[in-house]
Deep mutational scan, measured.
Amino acid sequence: DEDSERELEKLRKNNASKEEIKEVLKRLGFSEDEAKKLAEKAG
């Protein structure tokens, strides 16, 4: 959803580590696997 998109955008701009991105995604309700895949894509 839009909030998670914004959250990811912010992380990308701040050069967050894949680990940080994954944690945020998991907080947003993604499964471990989904979060890992998305973090890879974002990283």
Rank of each mutant, 00 (worst) to 15 (best):
S17E: 05
K18G: 07
L38A: 07
L28P: 02
E19I: 04
L38Y: 04
D1Y: 14
R12V: 14
E19F: 00
K41N: 11
N15K: 07
G43H: 12
N15S: 07
R27S: 12
N14A: 13
E7V: 15
N14E: 09
D33Q: 08
E40F: 00
A39Q: 04
L8N: 04
A16H: 04
E20G: 04
S4A: 15
R6D: 10
D1I: 12
A42Q: 11
L8Q: 02
R6E: 09
K22T: 13
E20W: 07
L38H: 06
D33N: 07
E7I: 15
K13R: 08
F30R: 02
A39F: 07
E32M: 00
L38I: 13
A16K: 06
E32N: 01
D1A: 12
E7N: 05
S4L: 15
L25N: 05
K37M: 11
K10P: 01
A16Q: 05
A39K: 02
L25K: 04
E34W: 04
S17A: 06
S4P: 13
D1S: 13
A39P: 02
F30T: 03
D1G: 10
K37T: 10
K41M: 13
N14H: 09
E34F: 06
L25M: 05
R6H: 10
V24H: 14
D33E: 13
A42W: 15
V24T: 09
E23F: 00
E20I: 06
G29Q: 01
E34Q: 08
E5Q: 12
D33R: 01
N15P: 03
E2V: 14
E40C: 09
N15L: 09
L28Y: 01
D33A: 09
G43V: 14
K36G: 13
A16T: 03
K10T: 08
K41H: 12
R27F: 01
K18V: 15
S31I: 04
G43M: 14
K36S: 14
L8S: 02
E2Q: 12
R6C: 15
G29S: 00
E7K: 05
D3S: 11
L28W: 01
I21N: 02
R6W: 09
E19T: 07
L8A: 02
G29A: 01
E19W: 01
A39D: 05
V24R: 10
E7Y: 11
D33H: 06
E2K: 10
L25F: 01
E23C: 10
K13Q: 11
E2G: 11
I21T: 02
E20S: 05
E32K: 00
K41A: 13
L25E: 07
G29Y: 00
D33P: 05
K26D: 09
E19R: 03
K18F: 15
A16V: 06
K36Q: 14
E40A: 04
E5K: 12
K10H: 11
D1V: 13
S31L: 06
R6K: 13
D33G: 05
L28A: 03
E9K: 05
V24E: 10
E34A: 08
A16R: 06
F30C: 06
S31V: 03
I21K: 01
A42E: 14
E34Y: 07
A35Q: 05
E7L: 15
R27W: 01
L38F: 05
K41G: 13
L25H: 04
K10V: 03
S4H: 13
A35C: 06
R12A: 09
A42L: 15
E40M: 01
F30D: 02
K41F: 09
L28T: 01
D1L: 14
E20C: 13
E23S: 02
N14M: 09
L8D: 07
K13G: 09
A16S: 06
A35R: 01
K41Y: 08
N14T: 09
K18A: 13
S17Y: 03
N15H: 13
E19C: 08
K26P: 07
E40D: 11
A16L: 10
L11V: 08
N15T: 06
E5A: 10
E23A: 04
K13P: 06
L11D: 07
E32P: 04
S4Y: 15
K22N: 07
N14K: 12
G43F: 15
K10F: 08
E34I: 07
R12D: 07
V24N: 08
E19G: 02
K37H: 10
K37A: 12
L38M: 12
E34G: 03
E5L: 15
E2D: 11
D33F: 01
K18L: 14
K26F: 00
A39M: 13
L11W: 00
I21A: 05
L11M: 07
L8E: 05
K26S: 08
E32W: 00
N14I: 10
K36D: 15
N14D: 08
L11H: 07
E40P: 03
L28S: 02
K36T: 15
G43D: 10
E9Q: 05
L11E: 04
K26Q: 14
E9T: 03
L25V: 04
K18P: 14
K37V: 11
I21L: 07
R27C: 12
D1F: 14
A42M: 15
I21M: 08
E2N: 12
E9R: 07
A16M: 10
F30Y: 11
D3I: 13
A16I: 06
S17L: 07
E2H: 12
E40Y: 00
R27A: 12
K26G: 09
V24Y: 11
L28K: 01
A16Y: 06
S17T: 10
E20H: 07
E2A: 11
G29K: 00
D33Y: 02
G43I: 14
L11R: 06
N15W: 00
A39R: 02
S31R: 02
S17F: 05
A35T: 03
E5S: 11
E9I: 07
L28C: 13
A35K: 02
L11F: 00
L25P: 01
V24A: 15
K37S: 11
G43S: 12
E23L: 02
R6V: 10
L11K: 05
K41S: 12
E40I: 01
L8Y: 06
E7W: 15
L38E: 07
